[in-house]
Amino acid sequence: MADGKTGLWIVGARGGVATTVAVGLAALRRGDAPAYGLATETAPFAGVDLPGWDQIVLGGHEVRGGTLLDAARELEAGRVLPIGAADRYADDLARLDASIRPGVLVRSGAAIESLADAASVVPCATPREAVRRVAEDLIAFRDAQGLERVVMVLLGSTEPPVDAGALPTDVAALDASLDDAARCPLRASSLYALGAIEAGAALVNFTPCLGAGFRAIEEKYFDAALPHCGADGKTGETLLKSALAPMFAARALRVDSWVGHNLLGNRDGAVLADPEHKRAKVQSKERLLESLLGDAPQSHVSIEAIDSLGDWKTAWDHVHFRGFLGVPMAMQFTWQGCDSALAAPLVIDLVRLMDLALRRGEKGALGALAAFFKSPLGAAPRALIDEMNTLVEWARR
């Protein structure tokens, strides 16, 4: 088993996924729940040196008000958590609440800014100050808790995309941009990523946000000998695409079109109702098919906010394909899942695996963890089974 304690620092620490992670770890520590959804608890990972449940210590940043106990009760009401879980694990939630610090809100987009509580946001005159504040919080957390390693996980809402042409092209330009709030193109997710570097922490970007997804910041991670991975957790419709699309390719079935309609509620749905924020999510979901099929079918992805669904997302897909002699056929499927319950175990898996990467001294984008992401850094998207085989080989190395 890994030595010492590992910090899991969550950006978006009172959101649905973060709250489910906190309750889930508490339940696992007490033996109250089976390890469903956790890849690292399956047979291929037996014997891999990963931290135990009681070695993972939680903290985080948040720009919204409220408490984790309130968040857990809201999830209970939405059938995401078992009834009584909020009160049963109230002490665990209170410990995390005590470690949550006000977050930074820099060019995060109107929809995210509308959710923020002024008392939960650190005012920063420049992007460099935001990076410094983030790093100081991480270092204080590590020292106060006596942690051996820290992994930051981005779980905040989806920011609008950043124009690639506006990004700094090298480390010098990146560093210079941090002193000019008016001209720096970076959003909060990238400033959090830079703060993680300053604090010596690994990074997991579970969101479609830019984070560490450009060359200059990748160079900084490599130079700092720190690992990072992302982006955009693969939990629902895209997970199915990565399993089903290779089937069509393997049988030489020609996919002419693949249309997906996605419905979701909760705060993610509210943020993605804004066209600018939605654009980043749609781009992430659309990238997969061409790499798996060999060519690009006509494709359309829609995302609609439906308040009544709460944390339960629904995806309906229609696949139009041709077989022998050009005969047209179709497949339709419906995916209905609980967003937080699908994502939370992946977050726990990723923290355990990034802890392993830190102990191994790995650095830069970890393409071996591509199985968890829609838009993996350091690797091209592949069939899910191939990505899982690569992950197991890497973990058992």
Results as ranks from 00 to 15, higher is better:
A2P: 02
D3F: 08
D3A: 12
K5M: 10
G7K: 07
V11W: 02
V11F: 03
G12R: 06
G15R: 03
V21G: 05
A26M: 06
R29C: 13
Y36E: 14
A39I: 03
T40W: 03
G52F: 06
W53G: 10
I56P: 01
V57S: 09
L58E: 04
G59C: 08
G60I: 10
G60A: 14
G65W: 04
G65P: 00
D70H: 12
E74H: 14
L75F: 14
L81Q: 07
L96Y: 06
A98C: 08
V106L: 07
I112K: 02
A130D: 03
A130L: 05
V134E: 02
A144C: 12
R149K: 11
E159M: 12
P161K: 02
A164M: 07
V171P: 00
L178Y: 03
A181S: 13
R187H: 06
Y192P: 04
I197K: 03
G200Q: 05
N205H: 03
F206E: 01
P208W: 01
L210Y: 07
F214K: 00
A216V: 05
E219K: 07
A224G: 11
L226H: 05
P227Q: 00
A231D: 05
D232Q: 13
E237F: 13
E237A: 15
A245G: 03
F248H: 11
R251I: 00
V255T: 08
W258V: 10
G260P: 04
L263N: 11
L263F: 15
V282Q: 04
L288K: 05
E290C: 12
V301L: 05
E304K: 10
E304C: 10
S308I: 12
K313C: 11
D317E: 11
H320Q: 11
G326W: 09
V327T: 14
P328C: 14
M329K: 15
W335D: 13
G337S: 13
S340Y: 13
S340V: 03
L346R: 09
D349Q: 05
D349L: 06
L353N: 04
R359W: 07
R359G: 10
G361L: 06
E362I: 00
E362G: 01
L366N: 05
L369D: 02
A379M: 04
E393C: 09
W394S: 11
